[in-house]
């Protein structure tokens, strides 16, 4: 399965990665070889095998529904680029 340059651009956009246009063909080629390598797994017979959701063979532990966290807003917001009235400010996301 080969990736086209447009696939690479699409994936980069979804991941918010900026890729120089001249690098796109190289990425397409490298990623295609990686996929080709992984494709070998398709040869394995997985009939009757439960898909692996996690490498640890354990079940999720549950936490009792109790509030133990206290307000630490000031500490968290000390590292935020911009804060006003308790809100984190970010560049406007809609017009």
């Amino acid at each position: 399965m080969g990736l086209k340059p447009s696939d690479v651009e699409g994936i980069a956009h979804l991941a918010r990665l900026r890729i120089a246009p001249e690098d796109v063909p190289r990425y397409a080629q490298d990623l295609s070889s990686i996929l080709a390598f992984v494709e070998r797994l398709e040869a394995a017979d997985t009939e009757g095998v439960t898909p692996l959701a996690h490498p640890l063979d354990m079940a999720q532990r549950l936490r009792p529904d109790e509030v133990t966290e206290t307000d630490q807003r000031e500490r968290f917001q000390a590292i935020a680029p911009r804060v006003e009235q308790g809100l984190y400010l970010v560049p406007k996301v809609i017009e």
Binding site: D65, E66, V67, E69, R73, F76, G86, L87
Partner: peptide, 20 residues
């Protein structure tokens, strides 16, 4: 009472970001 993956409160109407 608490969030799905953390022990912060889910109560509505608290001052912004005090329950995050």
């Amino acid at each position: 009472r608490s969030k799905i993956f953390s022990a912060a409160s889910t109560a509505y109407g608290a001052p912004p970001n005090t329950q995050a």
